[in-house]
């Protein structure tokens, strides 16, 4: 799923300076599951913004709403009447939802309330780990189901590098947390499966044109298009 984190309040307040009529729009799919931008979080943010305004003696109209999915036109129709009441919409959806809102509601000034950060999985409750880089050319078949594109700090195709020590990467995460070396994981997994011969094969440079490096991607399923 797509995960996102709410922007710092100061950044949001700077964006909203001079704007006194704002709709905070949550999205009840991915960002709700990662506890960042669902209806509950939209209500909290709207309340925070009202509290800030009230503490400063400003009169504002800040309400919240939520779409089942901000990235699909049909669900945006369901909140269209509410959005029409507000000149400014603070979207708590991922970047896809925010852009869908901006495209659908051309008159509204749509602003982002979150930073979309990864395609991840909840490893445990309230902990998410990056698992996919949407590179457009999946190589998990050869790597024991462990993705070196996002789980190796260097996205190496042939690892591990010299920075791998005792199963850990030399790079640490933003909070100084240790990162398992993806290639150490791949090595152990392939040996456990008796597929270590795979490790002797040299993987050629990856074709990044199938990722976002190749420009905006588009997918069309002709057989599924409405007749």
């Amino acid at each position: 799923m797509i995960t996102a984190e709410r922007k710092p309040l100061d950044e949001l307040l700077a964006m909203l300076e001079g704007k006194d009529k704002v709709l905070v729009a949550g999205c009840d799919t991915c960002v709700a599951v990662c506890l960042t931008g669902g209806e509950k979080e939209a209500e909290i943010l709207a309340s925070e913004l009202r509290i800030k305004a009230k503490a400063e003696g400003r009169s504002v109209q800040i309400e919240h709403t939520s779409a089942i999915r901000q990235c699909e036109w049909e669900y945006l129709d369901m909140i269209a009447a509410k959005v029409a009441e507000f000149p400014v919409v603070l979207s708590m959806a991922c970047g896809i939802g925010i852009q869908s809102m901006a495209e659908k509601f051309a008159d509204a000034y749509v602003l982002p309330a979150v930073n979309t950060n990864m395609l991840g999985m909840p490893q445990e409750h309230a902990v998410w780990l990056e698992r996919c880089g949407a590179c457009g050319d999946c190589l998990l078949a050869d790597t024991g189901g462990i993705c070196p594109v996002v789980r190796c700090s260097k996205s190496l195709m042939n690892g591990p590098c010299g920075g791998s020590h005792a199963g850990l990467c030399e790079v640490t995460g933003p909070n100084k947390e240790e990162i398992p070396c993806a290639w150490a994981l791949i090595y152990d997994k392939l040996i456990a499966q008796g597929r270590q011969d795979k490790l002797m094969e040299i993987t050629p440079p990856k074709d990044w044109s199938k990722s976002s490096s190749g420009g905006p991607r588009k997918m069309v399923r002709e057989e599924a298009k409405p007749v």
Binding site: K40, I44, S47, E48, R50, I51, K54
Partner: peptide, 11 residues
């Protein structure tokens, strides 16, 4: 108790 209940009371 939800976070919003605390905020609403203050608000």
């Amino acid at each position: 108790l939800e976070i919003i209940h605390l905020l609403k009371a203050l608000e």
